[in-house]
Design a protein around this nucleic acid. Structure first.
Lengths: 223, 223
DNA sequence: GTATAATAGGAAGGATGATTCCGCTTGTAA
DNA sequence: TTACAAGCGGAATCATCCTTCCTATTATAC
């Protein structure tokens, strides 16, 4: 389902060691692909056995390749981050900042919806693996926001973390709406985009917070 | 935490049967109150033992009063619905429809956040218990929306289900933001309210859907 | 083709958490 | 005050999943 970017261990080589058996390499890839689908559909609660079944291997094989379910999930999420990052970077290439921002804004919730586990992760932000890709993604979002603001297409009192949260809210709200989902998703994104335009509206309460600040608050909260 | 309205079995009478023992009645109420707190804090994943501990009773007592955890959750949610319904009806009493709508709109996500299990239920909508209160709540929301539209304070292409989903999105997005949460919640509600005002903005894609239609889509989706 | 070690599969083990059960306690009524 | 059934607590049971382990299989090197 997700195009797996930069698939770990996609080759026969294990650094500094013997080459692994061809079937082992293939099975690992099958597991990763199956896990990607299953986590996307069912979120992090998906069962290991289901993943094994879809990959056409035994549970033992899954667990040998990924010591815990958590590790498997992280591997899958890493791919998801890379995929979203790619979308953001493609948007950044657009010459029109307003256009770039809107485009990204419309695309992201759809991705969230199609990848439940990813959405959960974006919301929870508790695991620290995948940090490098994550950071790059946030940098890209920040850039999109700043450019849109400089172009006068986005109110100034908005920060990148606000964008990220609003989008995940839309994704969550529409996640279970069945076949109405794409329509509703776009409706809500449009409503929010309207609310985000600079204009004669009153200033927002509070202040734009950075991703870092938001993360600290979440950690404090998690006790 | 929630003021329990209309607490089931708050009296000694069991219809058509002997009165129940006083301590049993008291314990049932304690369990319900504890469950309300615990589900509010932790969502539906809260453990029965934790509820029993906070109620100061054994797990056996919890399970005797409510045959399954699901039943207990339903009882709690019923109270939550009544409480939200009360808020909506209070808002309807306000003479200014725009004011009434905004007031409700600002209050609801806070309620969601404080009552995790309720928010999950609003989003999932899979249980059919609590249907009567639910229906009344939706009627009240519809009324708030229609009045606000007639007063020219709300764009016309919005339906009550849209309002409900947007609010639950805000709740979800901000749920884990720790002490920043109230601030962010209000920011996002304001942004959405701005986006919902009638104005020179382009029309929304799709169409406003009713609660009933939304429910059907969800059921279809749940397979 | 054979020897060997890597890998597979899936049953057994372990952890967590809901539900049941049973001997003891206590409220209620005569 | 006593008798007794309702109700209590919490250990035992059951269910669900993740993880480990052991035997059988199979890729690979010679």
């Amino acid at each position: 389902m997700i195009p797996l970017v930069n698939e770990a261990s996609g080759t026969n080589e294990v650094d500094g060691d013997r080459p692994r058996r061809a079937d082992a390499v293939r099975n690992r890839a099958l597991v990763l692909a199956a896990a990607s689908d299953v986590f996307a559909e069912q979120g992090a609660r998906a069962q290991v056995e289901e993943i094994a079944r879809r990959a056409g291997v035994g549970v033992g094989t899954v667990c040998r390749n990924f010591p815990t379910k958590q590790a498997l999930l992280q591997a899958v999420l890493n791919s998801s981050y890379e995929s979203v990052l790619e979308t953001a970077e493609r948007a950044l290439e657009s010459p029109d900042p307003a256009e770039a921002f809107e485009q990204f804004f419309i695309t992201l919730p759809g991705f969230h919806v199609r990848h439940r586990a990813f959405a959960e992760q974006m919301a929870n932000e508790l695991e620290l693996a995948a940090q490098p890709v994550r950071d790059k993604l946030m940098a890209a979002i920040s850039e999109l926001v700043t450019r849109a603001q400089d172009a006068g297409a986005l109110r100034k009192d908005i920060g990148p973390a606000d964008v990220s949260m609003l989008l995940s809210g839309v994704a969550h709200a529409t996640a279970l709406a069945g076949d109405l989902q794409p329509m509703l998703r776009e409706r809500y994104v449009r409503i929010i985009l309207d609310g985000l335009r600079p204009g004669d509206t009153a200033g927002l309460p509070g202040r734009a917070v950075s991703f870092a600040e938001l993360r600290r608050a979440k950690q404090r909260h998690a006790k």
